[in-house]
Simulated assay, not measured.
Amino acid sequence: MATEKEVLEFIIVPPYTRRAEIFAAKERMEAYLGNRFPGYSFKVARLGPVGDDDDFCVLPVMNFLGDDGRSYMCSEPKSWFVGDIAASCRSFAVSSAHYCNA
Rank of each mutant, 00 (worst) to 15 (best):
Thr17His: 14
Thr17Gly: 12
Thr17Cys: 12
Arg18Asn: 11
Arg18Asp: 03
Arg19Ser: 15
Arg19Asn: 13
Ala20Cys: 07
Ala20His: 13
Ala20Gly: 10
Glu21Thr: 14
Glu21Val: 14
Ile22Glu: 01
Ile22His: 02
Phe23Thr: 00
Phe23Trp: 03
Ala24Lys: 03
Ala25Val: 08
Lys26Thr: 04
Lys26Ile: 03
Lys26Gln: 04
Glu27Lys: 04
Glu27Asn: 08
Glu27Thr: 03
Arg28Ser: 11
Arg28Tyr: 07
Met29Asn: 02
Glu30Ile: 05
Glu30Gln: 01
Tyr32Leu: 00
Tyr32Val: 00
Asn35Tyr: 11
Asn35Pro: 11
Arg36Leu: 05
Phe37Tyr: 08
Pro38Met: 08
Gly39Pro: 00
Gly39Glu: 01
Tyr40Lys: 10
Ser41Met: 11
Lys43Ser: 12
Ala45Ile: 06
Ala45Asp: 12
Arg46Phe: 09
Arg46Ser: 07
Leu47Met: 02
Leu47Glu: 05
Gly48Ile: 01
Gly48Tyr: 06
Val50Pro: 00
Val50Lys: 04
Asp52Tyr: 00
Asp53Met: 08
Asp53Ala: 10
Asp54Asn: 08
Asp54Glu: 12
Asp54Arg: 10
Asp55Met: 09
Asp55Leu: 11
Cys57Met: 09
Val58Gln: 05
Val58Glu: 00
Leu59Gly: 08
Leu59Thr: 04
Leu59Phe: 10
Leu59Val: 11
Leu59Arg: 09
Val61Asp: 06
Val61Ala: 02
Val61Lys: 12
Val61Gln: 05
Met62Lys: 07
Met62Cys: 06
Met62Leu: 08
Asn63Glu: 13
Asn63Pro: 09
Asn63Phe: 14
Asn63Lys: 13
Leu65Trp: 09
Leu65Met: 08
Gly66Leu: 01
Gly66Met: 12
Asp68His: 10
Gly69Gln: 02
Gly69Tyr: 06
Gly69Glu: 03
Arg70Trp: 10
Arg70Asn: 12
Ser75Leu: 11
Ser75Ala: 06
Glu76Met: 08
Glu76Pro: 11
Pro77Arg: 01
Lys78Asp: 06
Lys78Met: 10
Ser79Val: 14
Ser79Met: 13
Trp80Ala: 12
Trp80Phe: 10
Trp80Glu: 13
Trp80Lys: 15
Phe81Tyr: 04
Phe81Ser: 01
Phe81Ile: 05
Phe81Asn: 00
Val82Pro: 00
Val82Tyr: 09
Gly83Ala: 14
Gly83His: 14
Asp84Ala: 15
Ile85Asn: 02
Ala86Val: 09
Ala86Asn: 06
Ala87Ser: 05
Ser88Pro: 00
Ser88His: 03
Ser88Ile: 01
Cys89Phe: 02
Arg90Leu: 07
Ser91Arg: 14
Ser91Leu: 13
Ser91Trp: 10
Ser91Ile: 11
Ser91Pro: 13
Ser91Tyr: 13
Phe92Asn: 04
Phe92Leu: 02
Phe92Ser: 00
Ala93Arg: 15
Ala93Phe: 07
Ala93Val: 15
Ala93Ser: 13
Ser95Gln: 14
Ser96Gln: 01
Ser96Ala: 06
Ser96Trp: 04
Ser96Glu: 02
Ala97Lys: 15
Ala97Trp: 13
His98Cys: 15
Tyr99Glu: 15
Tyr99Gln: 15
Tyr99Thr: 15
Tyr99Ser: 15
